[in-house]
Amino acid sequence: MNFNGKQYYLGVDVGSISTNLAVINEEKEVVESVYIRTEGKPIKSIQRGMAILRDKLGFDLQITGAGATGSARKLTGMIIGADIVKNEITAHALASLEERDDIQTVIEIGGQDSKIIIIRNGVAIDFAMNTVCAAGTGSFLDTQARRLKIPIEDFGEIALESHTPVSIAGRCTVFAESDMIHKQQLGHPLEDILNGLCESMVRNYLNNVAKGKEILPPIMFQGGVAANVGIREAFKKYLEQDVFVPEHYDVMGAIGAAILALEEMEKRPRNSTFYGWNIPDMTFKTSGFECDGCPNICEIVEIRKNGELLARWGSKCGKWDDLSIVHEEKPRQMEKLIVGSD
């Protein structure tokens, strides 16, 4: 491929369920994107994603800046050598605004979190995220689809065939299961149950995450769950408004991270710290230990690239951030820690 000396930016978004990578050019247009499943191994999935991207774009493509986001953003930043590490809310808001600058509400439903971002006049003014419970997120649908033995990709299509959705409690996967089995035993057809699930998930989202928020059009719906037409239709029905799904709905976080990298490099021009396309060939290893320096017993994570210590985090006091300190395994003396007053 010929790149004509243009500048390219990489964004990586590693979430609980999926790992997304996107490369954009200076005009913030998406050149290539990758969506794969994290499967509980973020480092492996980043390397896999990078390998796929490398096969598509080739070794020669020069990356001017790289950004990391998602719940594994800190780790991701270390592995790719990101220039900027930012939270996913900022990344999603930026990517949505790039897609459509008149957007007022962003609904984002991912694997284990769902969020709403309220935008007015091109600025994010409010946001909310789901709290401890994963109900109303992608994993809820995943679990139900697995129970019914249908592939998640067909979920929405089947649900759309239904005309009379059954009502299912969407508060919790546990309640939803008992409700669903009850409806199955009564003889309700599969499509009605799936449609009921879609509606219960939307209801759950609107009553929990979006509670008290002013949802104004245009509304953008993104994240992995936006692929599900059943959910899209359910949102339209409950919001009584059109819901717009962007072209790259599944990699919006990665696009946002790439835009952040672009902004960062424009603001403070410098050489990128990005490790380059041979990331898939490097070996990364993480290990953890509990610090016994004080009664807080922080859990410290160490990450090594090709055997060399890259970073350490997790301590409250910041003591372990200094990489020159070597950690030695010692038996812990709990009794010593609780005595003494100050």
Binding site: S71, E88, I89, T90, V123, M129
Partner: peptide, 9 residues
């Protein structure tokens, strides 16, 4: 995440 997003915003 919330605090970072809050400050960015």
């Amino acid at each position: 995440t919330r605090i970072e997003a809050f400050i960015d915003m």
